[in-house]
Design a protein around this nucleic acid. Structure first.
Lengths: 244, 244
DNA sequence: ACCTGAACACCGTTCAAGT
DNA sequence: ACCTGAACACCGTTCAAGT
């Protein structure tokens, strides 16, 4: 069965319409000899280049060069650059295995685990985050992730509306946190920890509150900071859940 | 006094180093006759073009055309395109007046009001959100906003660490929410409300949890949805605050 | 001294010409 | 039939030449 049978006929997919067509391994016999140009290999190479040089410096020209082909060849596998980026995003989202989420004891643990795994993956691929935010991830792995988490939450008795909102909230939190801490300012890789320093170096007369809070902030390790905020968020959801 | 006196001498500003130099109105006598090219006018026009046509279609060429000049002229006022975008972001952040935040009764109200005003502003300028996320907003208005909110929170006795994290969390939430609901998929302006429809049209056999929760989601108005999530978040912060 | 037309080195995308 | 070199219409940025 093809993956497209998972959707009702002509449903318009936000983002690219032919999401599933160019999925890795969908092509026929790979050419023998030099590394073949199946979509999976293209996407894998694209991710590596983005990780190494950043999205800003990622062009179809450099991708084609790395693959030993011309740019026109890429268009035989993907509709355009955005579609390639969308597949890169989906490949990243597929890295953590979320199939074990429903073995956890509580929906709180489910959300905590989802948050941590998402955080780990985004830390590994910070340069991909802007593409992640350019559209809602509706590729196969993005959908599978959403399905696994929602299924676990519903299984623990969380109301459907709350489950959906909790998933979104945790996702936003992890993305927003990672973006500001390891985000595309990572073009200058030393810039990330300097933000607190920048705040602390402002004029205390003009910005007393900013400078004061900056002093406290720098002493907390990033992982702990992420942990704390996630706990906060889940506590808040808990207060809106039934029988508490 | 110039705005730059608010910072200690050579502090490296994340993003562009000469943030304050090109602030609106800083230039001398505007040329008489046709609309002058002071930085404020350039930024205002850039924001209008981005609002009208989206960031994707915003180029220095179109901006220069709209201003009746050449692209090279823009480089006499700003270092590069990113600096122009950073100023556009700061202009947007300056739209809500946050000076009255310390008149509110509780820190919870402070955060709620901040969230709502940020949400309103982002809804008015959804095309600017990607630029907002490209770097931490450290322009004059971004700093003033942070200072006002933190001052109000500290004034209500919130610990400094919690205040800083709460500010960040609410900011992330508003940005993340607005992005997904009114974000750059707004290239297709009908796409935003279709996300829930997309989820609902998936195969219920393959995605039972997604389709089930999608049914619930569509009935809730967006403003209410935003409200609920914000309440959730603030409740969570409340549980980590002292004497509760 | 100040401004900017015209060029430079790219970019995503297309298609006619090759095999 | 399949592939792709070379072109097209852009882009951000620079600078020599104008005033």
């Amino acid at each position: 069965m093809t993956a497209s049978s998972d959707m009702r006929d002509d449903a318009l997919v936000p983002g690219s319409p032919a999401w599933w067509a160019a999925r890795p391994g969908a092509h026929g016999t790979p050419r023998r000899g030099r590394p073949s140009l199946d979509p999976g290999h293209i996407v894998k190479t694209a991710l590596r280049l983005i990780d190494e040089r950043g999205v800003q410096d990622f062009s179809l020209r450099t991708l084609a060069d790395e693959l030993g082909s011309g740019t026109a060849t890429l268009y035989r596998h993907f509709a355009n650059k955005d579609e390639i980026l969308a597949h890169v995003v989906d490949r990243v989202l597929g890295e953590p295995d979320l199939g074990d989420l429903d073995t956890l004891g509580t929906w709180q643990e489910t959300l905590t685990t989802m948050g941590h795994r998402l955080y780990e993956v985004l830390r590994r691929h910070p340069a991909v985050i802007p593409s992640l935010m350019a559209q809602i991830p509706v590729g196969p792995n993005g959908l599978a992730q959403r399905e696994h988490v929602l299924r676990a939450l519903l299984g623990h008795g969380l109301p459907a509306g709350l489950a959906a909102r909790a998933f979104t909230a945790v996702g936003h939190y992890a993305i927003g946190f990672t973006l500001q801490q390891h985000g595309p300012a990572a073009a200058d890789p030393a810039a990330a920890p300097q933000l607190a320093t920048f705040y602390r170096n402002l004029n205390p007369g003009s910005f007393p509150a900013i400078t004061h809070t900056a002093d406290v902030l720098t002493s907390v390790p990033l992982d702990e900071e992420f942990h704390f905020g996630l706990d906060c968020l889940i506590s808040g959801i808990e207060r809106h859940a039934p029988h508490d």
